[in-house]
């Protein structure tokens, strides 16, 4: 019962703030609601007992990426942006895309779970000890894909530095 209440609280919070992110005119307000949405998602992770995922979500998205967003937003002159037309009126394209995406999500849930309403409960004991399990997966079971991904990210990072810097 309590699990359900917590889940619906965080889910509603995430959805409402996600809607507000795209409807607010002020960019900083959007950023704050994005932070709320991300934190609410972290809360859902926590209620599923995925502690490691919860804290990584907070450290990476809220504490890292979003801080950089806010950093950039504050350097932009907001007064100019407020007077520009920020909304694209071609809503039928958006509607079509939304319907397509929604159908895809429903189909994915139906195929994998066979039902829309009864989802299997989170395995409580299977996730203990959380961090160690993630580490085992990353550095033992899937060590090669993990390393390839990190090399790829490193290359992208160096590429970004090279492109951003005029004189090396």
């Amino acid at each position: 019962m309590l699990d359900l209440v917590i889940f619906y609280f965080f889910a509603a919070l995430a959805v409402v703030s996600a809607v507000l992110v795209v409807t607010r005119r002020n960019v900083v307000h959007s950023a704050i609601f994005l932070a709320t949405a991300l934190l609410a998602t972290a809360g859902i992770f926590l209620s599923l007992r995925a502690e490691f995922l919860f804290i990584v979500q907070i450290i990476l998205y809220t504490g890292g990426i979003l801080v950089l967003y806010v950093f950039v937003i504050m350097l932009v002159n907001l007064d100019v942006a407020l007077h520009q037309v920020q909304f694209n009126r071609r809503w039928y394209v958006a509607l079509l895309l939304t319907v397509l995406l929604g159908a895809q999500a429903f189909a994915a849930i139906l195929v994998s779970r066979q039902s829309l309403y009864t989802l299997p409960p989170a395995p409580a004991q299977a996730l203990e000890p959380n961090t160690e399990l993630v580490a085992w997966g990353l550095f033992h079971t899937y060590v090669l894909p993990f390393e390839i991904a990190s090399v790829l990210l490193l290359v992208a990072m160096i590429g970004g530095v090279v492109m951003a810097k005029k004189r090396i």
Binding site: I32, I55, V56, I59, V67, V70, T131
Partner: peptide, 25 residues
């Protein structure tokens, strides 16, 4: 006593930066 105790301190503590940035803005 969380399994992720130290990460929790670091991650949640880092959220304080929002207070500073938003206050300044």
């Amino acid at each position: 006593d969380l399994n992720i105790g130290l990460l929790f301190i670091l991650g949640v503590g880092a959220l304080g930066i929002f207070g500073i940035v938003l206050g300044g803005w």
